[in-house]
Design a protein around this nucleic acid. Sequence first.
DNA 1: CGGTTTCATCGTCGATGAACGATATATCCG
DNA 2: CGGATATATCGTTCATCGACGATGAAACCG
Lengths: 112, 112
Amino acid sequence: MKPASPACCPPPADEPDLRPVQGDAADEELAALTKALGHPIRVQIVRLLTRRESCICGDIVKELPLAQSTVSQHLKVLKEVGLIRGEIDGPRTCYCLEPRTLRRLKALIGGL
Amino acid sequence: MKPASPACCPPPADEPDLRPVQGDAADEELAALTKALGHPIRVQIVRLLTRRESCICGDIVKELPLAQSTVSQHLKVLKEVGLIRGEIDGPRTCYCLEPRTLRRLKALIGGL
DNA sequence: CGGTTTCATCGTCGATGAACGATATATCCG
DNA sequence: CGGATATATCGTTCATCGACGATGAAACCG
């Protein structure tokens, strides 16, 4: 059982990532991740999700000066590269960071 | 005097970067840097410039499967965000990494 | 069941990006 | 001077992005 907390988006196991940080595949991966992060709103979303240690939901929309559909688009971009995860929780959706992908990004950047 | 080497793009002084890694300005900066890096060819160019410890020139074009003008465009994008530097050296241009900006990028990513 | 809320998806439109070939510019070599 | 070389820039074309409002789908509430 989990303590209290929103009970969504449990942190996955903390396995080390063995994939290389160089080579063509790594280049593509790094390009995809940085491209997804390459928009101020999306940086802000990631930042929001790091600050609230647990995941939040459509409150993200309320924090941003954009239409709901636009925010949903940005969330989709981040989800498609695996930087965040979204879990349906009743009528709403709960988003949170995917720490493994974030660590992977840091490793790839570090490899430069 | 420098040893041998292309003698262009000397590494700038190694001052610490005092700018914050959070806040709106940092978000914009991180978005701009990651956006510039968000293309496989540009990742490859940065990687090329890290491997040859010294700077190289239009050999970059020969390494890539793109027209010269396209490569020049990508170099411009990287230069505009300060990730690389280009110095005119006779009829050719010598590009190299800007280590300060790269360190800044790592700091910003680390701040996530 | 029917309305409300929450979110995702669709269609559209203007802006930006990526690629190219052609051209301009600047330097070097006869 | 005149040609060759190296690079930047321009103009064009097609694709993708970013934003929006409208609509659709799912779950909750009465």
